[in-house]
Design a protein around this nucleic acid. Structure first.
Length: 544
RNA sequence: GGCCCCGUGGUCAAGCGGUUAAGACACCACCCUUUCACGGUGGUAUCAUGGGUUCGAUUCCCGUCGGGGUCACCA
């Protein structure tokens, strides 16, 4: 059989000699040790925490080695394509400060290794597929979907390994006549790899994250060109990462199982393969087992979730970093003011086992990150969030800048050490400060009975004067306490709790809940100052 | 089920043949305090399991168990 002729008939078209591709995409001229990494999402538009996790790792590796991070769009599956997906991906990643040096839709870059949309690279894949057929390393397969699923059922029933391989690969041994007859009949076909592998043989492989692992040789005659002439992921991966001169592929663990295919493909194509690091997927607790975060069940997987909730981008990034490199947290504690990029990221320090995503930990980091902002920065952060995701009421909070800044200064504290850490997210912060903008909704129960509450409110109302400074104001609160049988001094109360109805703290709490609806707020005197006398009195009366 | 990966407190984890088995989150107690918070001090709690190897195993080897991933003309 004349394989060259067969190849030309199967994969028609004019192609350059393969060596020209080598010349078109020469090895990159980069400093010693520079790593070329990439992000290669499919354009479904859905970008999740796992993507971000891997993105940060790839970004750090590239940029701290003076290398290159590029964006490639794996759009070989028409069905998955979503309008505007590439923009969505870029926006989401920009929010978390992931910058690309080149790639799809990256302005101002040379983009010398493009195109970066796989569909636009069809010619290259086809040229190499044709070469493989010509060398007898790939062949056409005319099996229909029905035939393949029947085969799978049969194999399952017989407890054999499923797939297209060995004796089951019926199209492997088609004669020239049979092939031509099928072609003449206009039957659709795919191009399959004629695998040379033997599953009995093991390959020692070094994974940059997992360390030394063993993989079984591939013996599956995997599809490399689909019936529409577009490559499968595996084939495109080998070609692209070779010609885009990727040096390190950090990707999800779910790819580990297809690593044997990729190894064989690189071998057969005569390419040196990049280094790989397979990182574990983020997991969550589901009942009492853990599992990979799932797109359908877990809203917190979507990056959009964090934006909607108003998580501070840096906080999410810091959390990702603590999961990515265990020594990061210690470093960050030591150098909280250093640029995140000064941390020496190491692929080798990435965890080998899947981490459970812990929202409580994220929230703690968020609190700390937000506590570092100035009132002005907080103002901008909250306003940007409210504009996009807030209610109409919340958008209105920002109309009076001076007023809001007073509120924020109070709620965050001003001196460095004594800052409050009440704010976790923009959304939660907006809800927390709502009582400055409208009548309070009572969220906490009074500790004292109704009559005592009324007595406290009335007694305080009689003596309250907006002009009082904090000292005088608090002295009056103490007087009210003493008047009604509460201990004015905490120390007295602690020494002899039976002698009093309670302490001044109980009295203060009544006032606090009356004015704000909450038992947990910053300094009450300042709150009353910000609210003004009229609103303060209204609230005290309303609570009686 | 086959193949592969993983297994230190509730969570993230340091450890890499001899340690009082770090640290962070969460939790609890106390101190500070007009509440809450912040801050401070202290505390509860971990080497999945059974065999080896070794003077000695959390650490090395094997088995068991448990968890995860994957078995497409999807990536």
């Amino acid at each position: 059989m004349d394989l060259k002729k067969l190849a030309e008939r199967l994969i028609p078209g004019e192609y350059r000699p393969l060596s020209e591709y080598e010349a078109m995409y020469p090895p990159r001229d980069l400093p010693k040790g520079a790593q070329v990494t990439r992000l290669a999402p499919s354009p479904t538009g859905f970008i999740h925490l796992g993507n971000l996790f891997v993105a940060i790792a790839n970004e750090r590796v590239a940029h701290q080695s003076n290398g290159v991070l590029y964006l490639r769009i794996e759009d070989t599956d028409e069905k998955r394509k979503v309008e505007g997906a590439v923009e969505a991906v870029k926006n989401a990643l920009r929010y978390f400060d992931i910058r690309f040096d080149e790639g799809a839709e990256i302005e101002g870059a040379e983009n010398a290794y493009g195109p970066y949309y796989q569909r636009q690279r069809a010619e290259i894949y086809r040229a190499f597929a044709r070469d493989l057929v010509g060398r007898g390393l790939a062949y056409p397969c005319f099996c229909t979907e029905e035939e393949l699923s029947a085969l799978r059922e049969k194999q399952t029933a017989e407890k054999k390994i499923t797939g297209y391989y060995g004796e089951y690969a019926v199209c492997r041994n088609l004669t020239e006549e049979q092939i031509c007859a099928n072609l003449d009949a206009g039957k659709p076909y795919v191009i399959r790899l004629r695998s040379q592998g033997d599953p009995e043989r093991k390959i020692a492989f070094h994974d940059e994250i997992k360390g030394d692992i063993t993989v079984t040789e591939n013996d599956q005659d995997v599809v490399i060109l689909k019936s529409d002439g577009i490559p499968t992921y595996h084939f495109a991966h080998a070609i692209d990462d070779h010609f885009m001169r990727t040096t390190l592929v950090i990707r999800g663990e779910e790819w580990l199982a297809s690593l044997p295919i990729h190894i064989e493909l690189f071998d057969v194509l005569g390419f040196r393969r990049p280094a790989y690091g397979h990182n574990c997927s983020l997991q969550k607790m589901d009942g009492d087992t853990r599992r990979k975060l799932s797109k359908r069940k877990d809203p917190e997987l979507s990056l959009e979730f964090y934006r909607k909730e108003g998580y501070f981008a840096r906080a999410v990034k810091v959390y990702m970093m603590t999961l990515l490199n265990s020594n990061f947290e210690e470093w960050y504690l030591k150098f909280p003011d250093k640029d995140l990029e000064e941390f020496r990221f190491s692929v080798g320090k990435m965890g080998k086992s899947g981490a459970l995503f812990d929202l409580a930990k994220l929230n703690d980091i968020s609190k700390n990150e937000l506590a570092r902002l100035s009132a002005e920065e907080m103002f901008e952060f909250l306003r940007a969030w409210a504009e996009e995701y807030g209610t109409e009421e919340q958008k209105g909070y920002f109309a009076d800048r001076e007023y809001m800044l007073r509120v924020l200064n109070l709620c965050m504290g001003t001196s460095g050490k004594k800052r409050r850490k009440d704010f976790v997210t923009a959304k939660q912060a907006a809800e927390l400060i709502s009582y400055f903008f409208r009548a309070p909704v009572r969220e906490d129960e009074y500790r004292v009975d109704g009559k005592t509450k009324g007595d406290i409110l009335r007694a305080f109302g009689r003596t309250y004067d907006y002009a009082d400074d904090a000292q005088v104001w608090f002295a009056k609160v103490k007087n009210v306490a003493a008047e009604l049988g509460f201990a004015a001094e905490m120390k007295d109360y602690k020494q002899n709790p039976e002698a009093y109805k309670g302490s001044v703290s109980d009295v203060a709490e009544v006032l606090r809940i009356a004015v704000t609806g909450k038992a947990n707020t910053p300094d009450l005197w300042t709150i009353m100052q910000i609210l003004g006398e009229k609103r303060t009195r209204e609230r005290l009366c309303a609570a009686e």
